[in-house]
Amino acid sequence: MSLPGEKQTGREQTGSSGDPTNKGESGLVALFFIVGLAASLAIGWIVFPKLLYSKSEQPFDFSHVTHADAVGDCESCHFFREDGTYAGVPTLAQCTECHEEVQGESEAEETFVNEYVAEEKEVPWKIYSRQPDCVFFSHAAHVTGAGMDCAECHGDIGESESLKPYEENRLTGYSRDIWGKNIAGMKKNSWDRMKMEDCGACHKETMGSKGACFQCHK
């Protein structure tokens, strides 16, 4: 069998799709196409995200609901300093104000008091919304300046009873929440994604411009 001959056959066949003798074969070709399509779709949509992200647990569990009930609001723990900078996740010292001793009965609190409070070790929280170092984000501008709610970017984390596993992108080291849970990058809610496009879109909408580089980069 010579190569040019085969090429010719191929051309003939594509040229005569209505030929009944080839019906079974084209069905098989379609099947192969579908198998390939299905497999790659499965890989792309199901396997790929599993491979791309590594999962790890937080040092111990934490209930925002319990704490919000006890202290009343987000700002008690996630506050602004006097200079307008945002304190972020509470430090050990802040937590210790209440948790010098074990208060409740949860296993998590016991871990916290024994392993961190007693050892005077900061809790290595994995922060779901951590942006890369090149990003400057002002909580003051958004919360105080623009009057936005925490939930607009952070969703319903304040109503969580326990902490979800932290998923880290193996390539970039970013938290999965930056790209969003949806691997296609689709978003339903304003807090579903935290990529530059999302910041830009909101800025464009509310301020008329995405702003220059330094607006969000340092």
Binding site: F80, E82, D83, G84, T85, Y86, F136, S138, A140, A141, T144, G145, F214, K218
Partner: peptide, 19 residues
């Protein structure tokens, strides 16, 4: 040089805080 833009950002943070 960025004209120390981060200092503007920090000053703005403080200004926001103090409205």
């Amino acid at each position: 040089c960025s004209f120390c833009f981060h200092r503007y950002q920090l000053a703005r943070d403080k200004a926001y805080q103090e409205e």
